[in-house]
């Protein structure tokens, strides 16, 4: 037998991580400062890795000369069109898969077979189908975005409580009204989570597609800089891509806060 005598110790802490915005920003800024400090101390040769200040200067020069905007505007246009096309078709097909058994297995089989293919490998094919110009680049993005969107949307539709759909039916709502007012809003959280994935995929594919037969675009710019071993310009292009990714993620975050404020 054991005697117990004393206060009951608290043991319910932890397992509750919280997001800290300032810590995220401080980490990125700290890493850049550390990088710059290492270069200035002469610990990293600038040929291996240019210093942040040098990249910044190059970026500034590219901005002033209009060179940056020339490439960035071409990339943004492709990104917007390719992502939108893939997303619109992806949501439509994902909804259909989530709603009708006739389409579910056939479409999901095709999606499962085509989703894992690296779309970059298909670029030559897309060039033959859609031409060397904008068509093949937009098709690469569109296909890359389409499959994950189908999967995210179908999963979101499956997650809509059946009881809510029965409720809609019990009030005699039309199929279209149920889809619009119950299924789509119910699937929206999953669709928005899918956007986080598809925008990243789109940026990766954009650069890859622009490395084949493009004169303009961040991908073409990065490729040209790399061929010349112009590391300042190469990294300037990469910083632009990283910033693009951060901005898109932030926009989606804002969209989630606005559209899902009921949660």
């Amino acid at each position: 037998m054991r005697r117990i005598d004393g206060p009951v110790a608290f043991r319910g802490g932890g397992f509750a991580p919280r997001a800290r915005g300032w810590a995220a920003a401080a980490t990125l800024i700290g890493l850049v400062l550390l990088w710059q400090a290492l270069e200035m101390a002469g610990l990293v040769p600038t040929l291996f890795l240019p210093a942040p200040l040098a990249i910044g200067r190059t970026l500034w020069a590219l901005t002033l000369s209009g060179e940056l905007w020339k490439h960035l505007s071409a990339s943004l246009l492709r990104l917007a069109i390719g992502w939108t096309v893939g997303t619109v078709f992806g949501i439509a097909v994902g909804l259909a898969v989530g709603l009708w058994s006739a389409l579910r297995s056939p479409v999901m089989a095709v999606v499962a077979a085509l989703f894992p293919i690296p779309k970059i490998a298909l670029v030559p094919l897309f060039i033959i189908w859609f031409g060397i110009g904008e068509g093949s680049k937009i098709a690469t993005l569109g296909f890359g975005v389409f499959f994950p969107t189908v999967i995210a949307t179908a999963g979101g539709v499956d997650a809509v409580p059946r009881g809510l759909i029965r409720m809609g039916q019990s009030f005699g709502l039309s199929t279209w009204k149920i889809v619009r007012s119950i299924v789509l809003p119910g699937a929206l959280p999953a669709i928005l989570t899918g956007f986080r994935v598809t925008t990243s995929i789109a940026i990766v594919l954009l650069v890859a597609a622009e490395m084949i037969g493009a004169e303009r675009g961040i991908g073409a710019f990065v490729l040209a800089a790399g061929n010349l071993y112009d590391m300042d310009a190469l990294l300037a292009g990469i910083v632009v891509l990283s910033a693009l990714g951060l901005i898109v993620a932030w926009v989606i975050g804002v969209a989630e806060r606005v559209l899902l404020r009921w949660r």
Partner: peptide, 16 residues
């Protein structure tokens, strides 16, 4: 507008 109308055990409200 809906002669036979249901009231649900789990309320079936749209959370959004």
């Amino acid at each position: 507008l809906n002669p036979v109308t249901y009231v649900f055990q789990d309320f079936a409200l749209l959370p959004w």
